[in-house]
Design a protein around this nucleic acid. Structure first.
Length: 225
DNA sequence: ACCCAGGTGGCCC
DNA sequence: GGGCCACATGGG
């Protein structure tokens, strides 16, 4: 069973996901940071509040006092650390790229990724999400669901982030739209079918999944990534 | 009253 | 390099 075949099954089952919902690149970046270990619903509230206060630009985040930013994004959870992370990113952007996202995104891809990863609070998944969804770079996003789902399907043995990322990138067409859609579909699958064992019964990948086939209902799904 | 969410960094060994 | 842990609100 191939990585690309699973993509087609998921696309057929769920349809297009229209990720990433946002009006600007900076909104995508902000969302990527705020959604760390947090449901998108909560992030939407925080983004809406940022818009209401007209703070959804690099300059506005750069200038806003930290306590004020914390208050606005509070609904997204982990609000103190996330406010600090948003500040870290815009500080980095102004110190190195005149606060201009276009200057940042015009970097060579491997340098761009290193630059993003150098910001405290931007890890691998967030960096790749920014690369792919904000800057249209060919960088596959691996999340917790990706590793859970594809190890259960027996399609990956290695669970290191970079290894898994490479498996997807070497088995898919070099197409940004497919990368975007695939990650979104994996999240949709995960949200619907991988949180509680009984839900496995209705999963479109049930036949291929070790857990769905012979699950032990007394045991919980490993929540480790 | 639990459990979980579109992770990350700081410790520790 | 990996195993724990804190971070925190809103929804099931």
């Amino acid at each position: 069973m191939k990585i690309h075949t699973i993509y087609k099954i998921l696309l057929n089952h769920f349809g297009k996901q229209f990720w990433w919902p946002a009006e600007t690149k900076f909104e995508i970046i902000t969302g990527a940071i705020l959604t760390q270990q947090t449901s998108w619903k909560n992030v939407e509230i925080a983004i809406r509040r940022l818009k209401i206060h007209k703070k959804l630009t690099p300059k506005a985040i750069y200038e806003i006092p930290l306590p004020e930013l914390e208050e606005i994004i509070k609904p997204s959870g982990f609000y103190k650390i996330k406010a600090r992370r948003l500040k870290n990113f815009v500080n980095f952007l102004f110190e190195n790229y005149d606060g201009d996202l276009n200057k940042l995104s015009s970097l060579d891809e491997s340098l761009l990724r290193k630059q993003l990863l150098s910001v405290n609070g931007i890890g691998k998944e967030t960096a790749d999400a920014i690369m792919l969804y904000a800057f249209d770079k060919l960088s596959f996003v691996v999340d917790g669901y990706t590793i859970r789902i594809f190890s259960r399907l027996g399609l990956i043995n290695e669970i290191g982030y970079e290894r898994v990322k490479r498996i997807f990138e070497t088995n898919l067409p070099k197409n940004v739209e497919i990368y975007k859609e695939y990650h979104a579909l994996i999240v949709e699958l995960g949200k619907n079918f991988c949180r509680k064992i009984p839900k496995c019964l209705y999963c479109p990948l049930k036949k291929r999944c070790k857990y769905a086939n012979n699950y032990d209902a007394t045991k919980k799904i490993g929540k480790k990534n």
